[in-house]
């Protein structure tokens, strides 16, 4: 408590925050990775900065990225969802089975594709609602609920696939390939959808009452409750939103290889959570930023990409490099301890 009270405090006192590592940290880490990639690419004549490599990295970031945007809301509101990876696998299996079984009866392929998309979105919505219901209405810890559903979806997809692989009918596969590989030149559909989801997510987080409520609930649920915020409804909405986005990610995933197996989406949940935290969202909730999450996802994808472009590091050590960079990115943005 300082004695220096100002009755009319300055409205703009943000100049200092431009130099704030909390904001700059993830951006710096991303920039450093891009420089590193460019350097490596120059030494071995690979094509790190080519349109096709950039397009590859952005497209493959899209699944985790879209899911991580949803995860940002869940974590900001003080929750967690470990089930998204298995959920994606399960939805992918469901979509493939649905489309295969209708292939005989429905003639129009575009119609089939639309049905598949509908199935993905509604399955995601339902799965998210189940998680949300258990967390809010049944008052079970999010960690336990989603650990449980993680196991359930994972074994459901294994069961659907008989332990093997579910594959889309060949004709359908050709028809839906453009959903992953098509677009406008290097600007493929996954990139477009990811960008759209990210911009929309950032807007919702920063500019809407919903985003504000998420942060308030994550910061102190009691305060939110005493402030007439419908805590359960907001919390439920975060899980439903995440489920829906898992559905969107699956729509983009299925066309890539046209198959789903028990290994689909393994560890996606941890990658999504890591991306969210690297981006500066607080794991225990109360503060979240979607743009940071996007950078976090790009950092994770770039690490893998760069390691594949060079032989300098033994592939056995890939995980170690990733770990070091994740920790560094978070250390960089640690806030100085609040003064007295």
């Amino acid at each position: 408590m300082t004695g220096a009270a100002a009755t009319a405090p300055q409205r703009r006192d943000r100049s200092h925050s431009l130099l704030d590592l909390h904001v700059l940290g993830p951006i710096l880490a991303l920039a450093a990775l891009i420089l590193l990639g460019t350097g490596i690419s120059a030494t071995n004549e690979s094509t790190f900065l080519s349109a096709s490599n950039i397009s590859n990295v952005l497209s493959r970031s899209a699944f985790i990225g879209i899911i991580a945007v949803g995860m940002t809301f869940v974590i900001t509101a003080g929750g967690l969802d470990l089930s998204v990876g298995s959920m994606a696998a399960f939805i992918a299996g469901l979509v493939i089975l649905t489309m295969n079984s209708l292939a005989g009866t429905v003639e129009s392929v575009p119609m089939l594709v639309l049905v598949g998309m509908g199935a993905a979105l509604s399955a995601g919505l339902a799965a998210g609602a189940i998680n949300g219901f258990l967390v809010t209405n049944m008052r079970i810890e999010a960690f336990i609920v989603t650990l449980g559903t993680m196991g359930i979806y994972r074994s459901l997809v294994t069961w659907l696939a008989d332990g093997g692989t579910l594959s889309l009918d060949f004709t359908l596969r050709t028809a839906i390939r453009p959903i992953y590989f098509g677009g406008f030149g290097w600007l493929t559909w996954p990139i477009i959808v990811f960008a759209f989801v990210a911009v929309l997510g950032e807007l919702v987080m920063r500019r809407t009452a919903f985003g504000r409520y998420c942060a308030a609930i994550g910061s102190n649920e009691q305060v939110a409750r005493y402030s007439s915020v419908n805590v359960n409804r907001v919390r439920m909405a975060t899980y439903v939103l995440l489920g829906l986005l898992v559905g969107v990610a699956t729509i983009l995933y299925v066309p890539r290889l046209g198959s789903a197996s028990p290994t689909t989406g393994v560890l996606w949940e941890l990658e999504a959570i890591a991306a969210v935290i690297i981006g500066g969202t607080v794991l225990k909730g109360g503060f979240g930023r979607v743009w940071g999450t996007v950078i976090g996802v790009l950092i994770l994808s770039l690490i893998g990409n760069i390691l594949n472009l060079t032989d300098a590091v033994s592939p056995y050590l890939n995980g170690a490099i990733q770990g070091v960079i994740i920790i560094l990115a978070v250390v960089l943005q640690r806030e100085k301890k609040a003064g007295t």
């Binding site: 071995n44 690979s46 094509t47 790190f48 080519s50 096709s52 490599n53 590859n56 493959r60 692989t165 890539r256 290889l257 198959s259 197996s261 290994t263 689909t264 393994v266 893998g304 990409n305 594949n308 472009l309 592939p315 890939n318």
Partner: peptide, 21 residues
Amino acid sequence: MEHGNWNRDDSFTVMQDFLSR
């Protein structure tokens, strides 16, 4: 040589990067 972990998604990613390289 890179590890694709006997996994379709991982090998897709690794192969994309090999093709860039």
